[in-house]
């Protein structure tokens, strides 16, 4: 669906993106992670057709996005930094979008009034930042987009509204195969919604992962022994991390779950716990050297 090849962009002497490659499958939710200044917003502005690439190509559904109104009519872009016309209220802004986006779903707009519960006659620029974000989602969803580009989307939203918004979006993903690309500097935010994650750092994509795969083959084990910790424990498996505290051992191991557990049992631990891994931990342990870089990058 979204296909970015060798994208590069410089601002003056600053290289914002360097030969970036990225693929997002149709109907998936792709999380773009990276610290401030990594190039997330720059990449998204390219995907939205705002910036002209210095090099490389960006296609969505096989078509280049830059200066392509037909394609852009099916993209909803919700920037981190929202802009609304200073005098306009929600109703007028909705009308403005409905005239420019042929797929605008008026019925949906009316229906969503209940979800967002903001008086549509209020001037948008007078609303709080969080409410403005809600308006952006409200309008964005009504464009019936095939692609949603969300830059730091849940910033400023309260937890209840976060949940509501995500459920609306994920519903679209499920029903209409909408492709979503969402950026954040906070991994935890994306954990629940993304099926793919890419980490952007200094304008380059450090890695790309399918989260489902990740989750199944990395395990965090906590073992306690009555005496010495036996040597050669789990020697057959790939131990990504090992931390010993007296007779308590903490291991991060890659491998099939059953096999790993069977190996561990052989050493007769007093306690054997399989602990849940956070996405952050997976990244850090999985990636080794690169992962430790990421540790500094991700919060």
């Amino acid at each position: 669906m979204i296909d970015v090849k060798n994208l590069s962009k410089t601002f003056g002497r600053f290289q914002a993106l360097a030969n970036l490659n990225l693929q997002v499958k149709e109907g998936s939710v792709y999380g773009l992670l990276g610290p401030n200044g990594a190039g997330k917003t720059t990449l998204i502005k390219h995907l939205a057709g705002v910036y002209r690439p210095d090099g490389g190509t960006i296609t969505i559904g096989g078509q280049p996005v830059y200066e392509n109104p037909q394609l852009k009519a099916r993209i909803a872009y919700i920037p981190d930094d929202l802009f609304f016309f200073s005098q306009a209220n929600i109703e007028e802004t909705a009308k403005f979008y409905s005239r420019l986006y042929p797929a605008w779903d008026e019925e949906r707009y009316q229906r969503l009034k209940q979800v967002f519960a903001i008086d549509p006659r209020r001037r948008i620029t007078r609303l709080s930042k969080g409410m403005q974000k809600q308006v952006a989602f409200w309008l964005g969803i009504c464009l019936l987009p095939q692609v949603m580009l969300l830059d730091e989307p849940v910033d400023g939203l309260d937890p209840v509204m976060r949940k509501k918004v995500w459920s609306l979006i994920l519903q679209d993903v499920a029903e209409r195969q909408t492709t979503v690309l969402v950026s954040s500097h906070n991994l935890r935010e994306l954990e629940d919604v993304c099926d793919h994650v890419g980490i952007l750092h200094n304008g380059e994509l450090l890695l790309e992962k399918d989260l489902d795969g990740l989750m199944t083959d990395i395990h965090k084990l906590q073992l306690a022994f009555s005496g010495e910790v036996p040597a050669g424990l789990l020697s057959g498996e790939t131990v990504l991390h090992r931390e010993q505290n007296g007779s308590v051992l903490l291991l991060i191991v890659r491998g099939e779950r059953e096999k790993v557990l069977a190996q561990a049992q052989k050493a007769n631990p007093l306690i054997l716990d399989l602990l849940p891994l956070t996405l952050e931990e997976i990244f850090i342990y999985e990636l080794g050297g690169v992962g430790y870089d990421c540790q500094n990058i991700l919060i």
Binding site: A48, P69, L71, K72, A73, D81, L100
Partner: peptide, 8 residues
């Protein structure tokens, strides 16, 4: 960014 993300 807003103006240029419009389908125009």
């Amino acid at each position: 960014a807003m103006m240029h993300s419009l389908p125009c």
